[in-house]
């Protein structure tokens, strides 16, 4: 597991990026998966160069390799989406980020260090699908804690404030 809970610590929320952000990436992948074979098929029929250079089985083999690469790229996108997690507990915030192979960042912040929570929703799709960024400012010179493209950011902000108020009491 990427993080260990403290004794008596309770998880209030586990969140990933909004599904729409990964959907857009997969849309490009799907487009490439459809378009390239269509172009190859069209070249096979209309052009004389391709059939001269390659036998049919070679073209199929090249397409198999192409789909293997497509599969790997899409799996990378999926892993990037699925393994970037934000956890809100009743004591702290935890951000787990996959920054590349063998490069993983786990950041935690105690709730009592929070000074301000800002929510920003930019763009047409962000407004339509209700996702945005949550910026959490801390006391001192520490860097801002940012949750990018989080679904229902206002609700998450309210939850953080509720947890913070309970902690202060």
């Amino acid at each position: 597991m990427a993080f260990q809970l403290r004794p008596s610590e309770k998880v209030l929320l586990i969140q990933r990026r909004h599904w729409f952000t990964v959907f857009v990436e997969f849309l490009w992948i799907a487009l490439l998966a459809i378009l390239v074979p269509l172009v190859v098929f069209w070249l096979q029929i209309s052009s004389e160069i391709l059939p001269v250079l390659f036998d049919e089985w070679m073209i199929v083999l090249l397409l198999v390799m192409y789909y293997q690469l497509i599969l790997i790229i899409s799996f990378t996108f999926l892993a990037d989406y699925y393994l970037d997690i934000w956890v809100v507990t009743d004591q702290r915030l935890i951000r787990i980020e996959l920054r590349g192979f063998f490069n993983r960042l786990v950041t935690t912040m105690n709730l009592n260090r929070i000074q301000d929570v800002k929510v920003s929703t930019k763009g047409f799709f962000a407004t339509l699908f209700t996702y945005g960024d949550i910026k959490i400012q801390t006391a001192g010179t520490e860097a801002e804690f940012v949750f990018f493209h989080t679904p229902k950011p206002q609700e998450t902000k309210n939850l953080i404030y509720k947890a913070l108020n309970r902690r202060v009491k």
Binding site: M1, A2, I14, T76, A79, L83, I85, I96, L98, R104
Partner: peptide
């Protein structure tokens, strides 16, 4: 490698 990431860092 990616599967290992899922196993090691998944919930």
């Amino acid at each position: 490698v990616l599967s290992y990431h899922f196993k090691k860092f998944g919930l």
